[in-house]
Design a binder for these strands. Structure first.
Lengths: 347, 347
DNA sequence: ATGAAAGCGCTAACAA
DNA sequence: TTGTTAGCGCTTTCAT
C-alpha cells in the first residue's frame, strides 16, 4: 500500500543485497537470459508486485531514448468525429503499451505547429496528427527526418508522410449518385475548407458523379469554405437566394448539415419535401434528427485504429515510411432526408 | 532546421566554450540572477531559437521530479460530455505549461484503476479523474498520500479529495419544478447508475421537488441503472407498461433521453403531445432533435477548466487538499419537449 | 550467475 | 560572472 517507500531499483537492491543491475534484469524479464537464481528472481518479483513497484519510466526514457509515448494532435477534441478517432487511438495504443499525450490545436494552424514541436521536444516516440489548414509546410522537415508521424483525415499526400483517410471521393460520389438516382438534378454542394484534401476529394466525387450522368456542372451550386455549422447556415441561406431551383443539398460535413437544417427551417423549407439533404460523416444523433439524415459514414473508429497501427509499424521499421497512404471505405447510410422526385435515370 | 544536431546543453556549451550550467541558466531565464554576460546570454538564446532547441524535458523531469504533465482519466472520450471536459482540461493545462496524458477507462472500473496507477507510475504531477463505478476505494490511498488528484462529475465526497461537479440536485429540482409548473403530476424518472453521486443527487432533486408540491412520490416511477442509450430505451418501454398514466419523463442523461425518444417513437407516443420529456446535460444536437429537447445544461466546459485550476492550486499548495468541493450551477434550457397540460399549481 | 561503472541530459550546491 | 561536481533512476557494456 505504501508506494512511496521503495521507489527505485537501488532501494530494492539493497533490501535484497543484490545489485540494481540484478533487480533491473529481473523486472525487465531478463532473469532467464542472465541466469539469475530463481529464488532471487521470485523474491524480487513478488516484492515488486506487493509494493506496486514499476521502474521509473522517466529514467528509463532518458536512458533508452524511448518514452512509450505517442503524441496526438487534434483540431477539436469536442468534435465527435475527432473524439471517436481519439478514443480508438488511445485504446489501441494502450494495448501496445503506449500512452497518449493529447494536444488540441483548436483549429489553429499556428497552435498546431507549436503542439507538434512541443510533442517532439517531449520526446514522444511517434505522432498522429489531424492537421488543419490548407498547407502544413513545416511538416516537410519531419518527413525528411523520417520521424514516425502519421496524418489522419486532413491529409497531405505530397509530403511523403504515411496517412489514413476515408475514401472521400467515393463517398461523395456515392452520395451524389444516390441523389441522382432519386431524380435530383439541381444539387447544391456545401463544401468544407477549400484546398484541403478531404474537401477537394469530396467535391471531385460530386462533379464526377454529375458528369457521369451528363448532368451539367454549375459552379454556382458549390458554396462554402469551412466545415462549421455557421458556414452551413449562412451558405444555405445564400444558396437559396442565388439558386432557388435547387432540389437537394449535399452538405459535406455533419456540422454543415446541421447548419443547413437550421437555415432551411428558418426559410420554411421542409426536408425532404421541399429540399433533400445528404450529410457527410455519420454521428449517432443524426438518426434522431427530424428527419433522420441520410449521410456518408466515415469509418472514423477504424481510422484511429489504423493510424496507430501504421505508426507502430513505422516506428519499428522506419524504412517503410513514405510508403503507405490508407484510404478506408465509406458507406452511405440511407435514412429519410431524401425525397424521390422522379423516376431514376437509367443506371 | 536541422534539429537533431544540437540536442543537449553540453553540445551547445562546447560550441560557445562555456559550461552546460551557463547554458542551462540562460535557457531557464536565470541569466540575470546569475549575472551572465549579456553577450553570452544573447548568443545562446539566439542560437537556441534558431536551432529550435529546448532542454530535454525527460532529463529535466528526472532531475526535478516534475514532468509538467497531468493525467486525465475519462470513461469514454467519445461521449461529448467528457470530450467537452477534456477539451477544456487540455487547453487550460496548456496555458499553464502542462501537457495532458489521456487515458480512457472505457467505463470499466478495473481499467480505470489500472490507468490511474499507470499515470502515477509515469510520474504525472497531478491527475484529473472522471470515475466510473459506485465506489473507488483504491483512491483512499492517494487521498491519504495527498497526491494532487481532482475528481470530476462522478464524485466521492467521502474520500476527502477535491472535486468539481455540476449542482445535480438543483438542476434536477429545477427540471422537476418546470414539469410541475406545466401541470404534470405523474412524472417518471429515468435515473443513471444507482449509487453514484450524480444519480443520487438528481433523484434527490426530483423527489424534493415533488414533496415541496405535495405530489406523492411513487417509487415505481423511478427506473434505470445506467446512463446509456440502451437503458433509456428499455426502461422507457417497461415504464410505459408499468405506469401507463405517466405524462412526463425526466431522463437524467442525454443518452437516456435519446433512448427514451426511440422507445416513444416505437410506441407511437408523440413528444410532447402524449408524453413530455426533459433531459439532463445539454449537447448541441439536442436543439436539432424532433422536438428540440428541453434539458438541464451542465457547465461541462467550466467543469473541465475548474478542475485544472483546482488541481494546479493543490499542486502548488498541498496543504489545501481535502478542502474544496466545487458545485457548478446548472441551467434549464427550455425548448419544445414539454407540453403544458393544465394551469400551474400555485407557486 | 552477478556486479561495477558509465552515462542518458539536466540542474543545483558549492566553489571560485 | 562562471564552472565543477554530483546525482536524479535507469540500463548496459564489460568484468569476474
Amino acid at each position: 500500500m505504501k508506494s512511496s517507500s521503495y521507489n527505485s531499483l537501488k532501494l530494492i537492491s539493497e533490501k535484497f543485497s543484490v545489485s540494481p543491475t540484478t533487480v533491473s534484469r529481473v523486472l525487465s524479464g531478463q532473469a532467464k537470459k542472465y541466469r539469475i537464481s530463481p529464488e532471487t528472481e521470485k523474491a524480487i518479483k513478488d516484492f515488486a508486485i506487493r509494493e506496486n513497484f514499476t521502474p521509473n519510466p522517466i529514467a528509463k526514457g532518458l536512458r533508452l531514448k524511448k518514452t512509450l509515448t505517442i503524441g496526438l494532435v487534434i483540431p477539436d477534441i469536442a468534435n465527435p468525429f475527432f473524439a471517436g478517432i481519439a478514443s480508438q487511438v488511445v485504446n489501441v495504443a494502450r494495448t501496445h503499451g503506449y500512452s497518449i499525450v493529447l494536444c488540441d490545436s483548436e483549429e489553429n494552424p499556428a497552435l498546431e505547429q507549436q503542439s507538434v514541436e512541443l510533442l517532439w521536444a517531449r520526446q514522444v516516440d511517434g505522432m498522429i496528427l489531424c492537421a488543419v489548414g490548407q498547407t502544413a509546410d513545416y511538416l516537410v522537415r519531419y518527413a525528411r527526418e523520417k520521424r514516425p508521424l502519421v496524418l489522419v483525415d486532413r491529409v497531405f499526400p505530397d509530403l511523403g508522410l504515411p496517412y489514413v483517410s476515408a475514401d472521400n471521393f467515393s463517398g461523395a460520389k456515392a452520395a451524389t449518385d444516390y441523389l441522382l438516382d432519386n431524380g435530383h438534378r439541381r444539387i447544391a454542394c456545401l463544401q468544407g475548407m477549400c484546398g484541403t484534401a478531404p474537401s477537394k476529394a469530396r467535391v471531385s466525387g460530386y462533379t464526377t458523379a454529375l458528369h457521369a450522368r451528363g448532368v451539367p456542372f454549375d459552379p454556382r451550386l458549390v458554396a462554402g469554405d469551412s466545415f462549421g455549422e455557421q458556414s452551413g447556415y449562412l451558405d444555405t441561406k445564400l444558396l437559396l437566394r442565388a439558386a432557388p431551383d435547387i432540389t437537394a443539398i449535399f452538405a459535406m460535413s455533419n456540422l454543415l448539415a446541421l447548419g443547413a437544417l437550421r437555415a432551411l427551417r428558418e426559410e420554411n423549407r421542409a426536408v425532404p419535401d421541399d429540399i433533400s439533404v445528404v450529410a457527410f460523416d455519420d454521428q449517432p444523433y443524426l438518426a434522431h434528427l427530424s428527419p433522420p439524415l441520410t449521410t456518408v459514414a466515415q469509418p472514423h473508429l477504424e481510422m484511429g485504429a489504423a493510424a496507430v497501427k501504421l505508426l507502430l509499424d513505422h516506428m519499428r521499421n522506419p524504412a517503410n515510411a513514405m510508403s503507405s497512404g490508407l484510404l478506408l471505405p465509406t458507406s452511405l447510410i440511407i435514412r429519410k432526408s431524401v425525397r424521390k422526385i422522379s423516376q431514376p435515370t437509367t443506371q
